[in-house]
Structure formats: C-alpha cells, structure tokens
Computed example of a mutant assay.
Amino acid sequence: MTSPVPIRQPCPPAACNCGHGQLLADPGADLRILQLTRFEERKLLERLESLQSFEDLQRLCGRMHELLGIRVRIRPSHNEVRSARGLLIEFDEQPGLCRKTREAIPAAIRRALVQRPEILFRLLDAEDLLRDA
C-alpha cells in the first residue's frame, strides 16, 4: 500500500489569495501544484538560485510546468534592460499557487541571473535583443 502524496498546508485566511480550499473542493481540478510543500518549495528555490546555464533555466522551467503545472514566462520588459531587474517574470493564472511562492520564484531566478550574467545575456539573445551588438 502506498502512502498518499503530501500536499501543501493551506495559507492562513486572508493572508493569501491562492484558493487552496476551492482547489481541493473542485473534483476536476489539477492538484499538482499542491504537491509543492514548503520543504519542496525551498528545494526548488535553491535549485533556481544555483542555475548553471540558459539551458538549465529552460529545463527547470519545463520541469516546473510538467510536474507542478507552473508556467513561467521570462522576457525583457518594454523599458531598457540593464540588469536582471529589467526582466518580466510572469506566471499564468493558476489556482493553488501561493502569493509568497509567486514572489519567491522570480526573486530566486533574478539572484541566479545576477550571479551568472551569461545566462541573462543568452536570455536576451534568445529574445533577439542583442542582434545589433
């Protein structure tokens, strides 16, 4: 007999708008995001902060979508991009994704891009921003 998959504890009432309770109440809902426990979230953030290459970033974003249903889009903002802060890191609307997690994932990605600027340059190059440089 296998044990059930641990799920994330609900956020305190009025502290988050993740919709944890509604997600559990919906029988047809995608519950993969609830597998991101606080411990697993810490491991994910550590992994994001230790990115080694642009391909690693793409692979990790793909795995987040595959395993948790989190779709992350990273693109340059409409203003000039001078640092990792000039990037827009957005999520598709997803019930069950905690507000704090929505803030922590982009922060971890930005820290990794600051540590390894070559990943940032490859990201900008993939968006064809450095074609004239």
Rank of each mutant, 00 (worst) to 15 (best):
M1C: 09
M1Y: 12
I7Q: 06
I7A: 02
C11R: 03
C11T: 03
P13E: 10
A15I: 10
C16D: 04
G19M: 05
Q22P: 08
Q22H: 09
L23M: 11
L23Y: 08
A25W: 07
P27G: 08
A29C: 11
L31Q: 05
I33Q: 03
E40H: 11
E40N: 12
E40V: 06
E41Y: 09
L44G: 00
Q52C: 11
Q52L: 14
S53H: 12
E55F: 09
E55P: 03
Q58R: 13
R59T: 13
L60Y: 06
C61I: 07
C61K: 04
G62Q: 07
G62N: 14
G69S: 07
I74V: 15
I74K: 02
P76V: 04
H78W: 15
E80I: 12
V81F: 04
S83H: 07
A84C: 11
L87K: 03
L87H: 02
L87E: 00
L88A: 14
E90R: 14
E90D: 12
F91K: 05
G96V: 02
L97K: 02
C98M: 06
T101N: 03
A104G: 08
A104H: 06
I105P: 03
P106R: 01
P106G: 05
A107D: 15
A108W: 02
I109H: 03
I109Q: 01
I109S: 00
L113A: 02
R116V: 05
R116S: 03
R116Y: 04
P117T: 09
E118N: 14
L120A: 01
F121L: 12
F121Y: 12
R122W: 04
R122I: 01
L123P: 02
L123M: 07
L124F: 03
D125P: 00
D125L: 13
A126T: 13
L129Q: 05
L129P: 01
L130H: 13
A133M: 12
